[in-house]
């Protein structure tokens, strides 16, 4: 393989490229669509309306507590399909590697991509690998696109959201970004914070199987967190959402780190959570359905849809009321 680091020649199209692709990458994802290594993966005829999504993944460090960029790249795309009610069929995997990137780290990342794809019952249908000169990338960038087929008869329906509906969050907020922040800044904590990165397809599609149109609309609160996703949901549904601060699930150690650094977990990214706007009558049943999955065990109703101008408010723990707005830029650590 030419040593233990990625070299420019791994991307130049010759023997090294071929070896890398066949022996390291394609070998892991072996399946009838990918394995012929045609210029396209041939998926055959798909049944139902097709959902199509894409996302680029860049993260420092590439391996973080609770996951790595590989698991992130698979789960992120699977979750984007799932919250639209699509059963994932196939994803692509495009790697941009920086010269000098350790081969063993690449293998770790590919292993977790493979595991996440297997867990999400999706095949890797096509891929691409490029190598750029040292300094021109941050180790590894991954882009995945995904194709899925919509579950019969269900589509996201923000227009059906109405007063009396409930807001469900499938688990604790902020774990992913807190884990990455801690890893990036080498903050020392006794209790480990792990990223929540996880494929949610079986949990969410299970809830749709049981409750269909009672689930109006779903999003995965990644970048910008629950606060931003809910604002976007309120906007697209044209409704007012009122959260109950006491019901917001936050892990004890995540809350601790937020208190110290002055962060609001409402705006921290999640990679294994979903927000659901659902029929008020069905809310408890849907929470119970989500809790059947290991990734939904802390699912909770966190608020409701009310009359009033579109936007997000929060009933605070001490009984006050305040706005939950879009943040501007990144949250920054407080000074004192």
């Amino acid at each position: 393989m030419g040593g233990d680091k990625i070299l420019l020649s791994h991307g130049e199209g010759g023997k090294r490229t071929r070896d890398l692709i066949r022996r390291v990458i394609a070998k892991r994802f072996e399946n009838p669509v990918l394995s012929p290594l045609f210029d396209s993966g041939l998926l055959g005829c798909l049944d139902g309306e097709i959902a199509f999504t894409t996302d680029g993944y860049v993260i420092t460090p590439p391996i973080f507590p609770g996951g790595d960029i590989g698991r992130l790249a698979v789960c992120g795309t699977l979750n984007d399909l799932s919250v639209c009610g699509a059963r994932p069929v196939a994803i692509s995997c495009s790697l941009i590697l920086e010269e000098g990137f350790p081969l063993s780290t690449l293998e770790t990342i590919l292993d977790s991509m493979k595991a996440a794809a297997a867990e999400g019952s999706v095949l890797v249908a096509c891929g691409d690998t490029k190598v750029v000169e040292k300094g021109n990338a941050d180790g590894i960038f991954i882009t995945t696109s995904g194709v899925g087929t919509l579950r019969d008869g269900w589509r996201p329906a923000p227009e059906n959201v109405r007063p009396g509906d409930r807001v469900i969050l499938s688990g604790t907020m902020g774990d992913h970004q807190a884990a990455v922040l801690i890893a990036r800044n080498r903050l020392e904590l006794s209790a480990a914070v792990l990223s929540d990165v996880a494929p949610l397809s079986s949990m969410l599609l299970g809830a749709l199987d049981e409750y269909g149109g009672k689930v109006r609309f779903m999003r995965d609160p990644t970048r910008g967190g629950v606060g931003v996703s809910l604002n976007e949901m309120a906007e697209s549904s044209g409704v007012r959402i009122v959260l109950d601060e006491r019901r917001l699930p936050v892990a004890e150690n995540v809350r601790g780190i937020c208190e110290i650094l002055g962060f609001d977990p409402l705006y921290l990214a999640n990679e294994g959570k979903a927000l659901l706007l659902v029929d008020g009558q069905a809310a408890d049943g849907i929470v119970a359905s989500l809790r059947k999955s290991g990734y939904g065990k802390n699912a909770a109703v966190i608020g409701e849809v009310t009359e009033g101008p579109p936007g997000v408010l929060m009933r605070t723990s001490v009984g006050g009321m305040r706005a939950v707005d879009y943040p501007v830029g990144d949250q920054l650590p407080r000074i004192c």
Partner: peptide
């Protein structure tokens, strides 16, 4: 490191009491 007792300082019943 764990931060304990955050909830105690945000207790809704106590807060209502103090406001009253």
């Amino acid at each position: 490191m764990q931060l304990k007792f955050i909830d105690e300082f945000r207790d809704p019943a106590l807060a209502r009491g103090v406001v009253g």
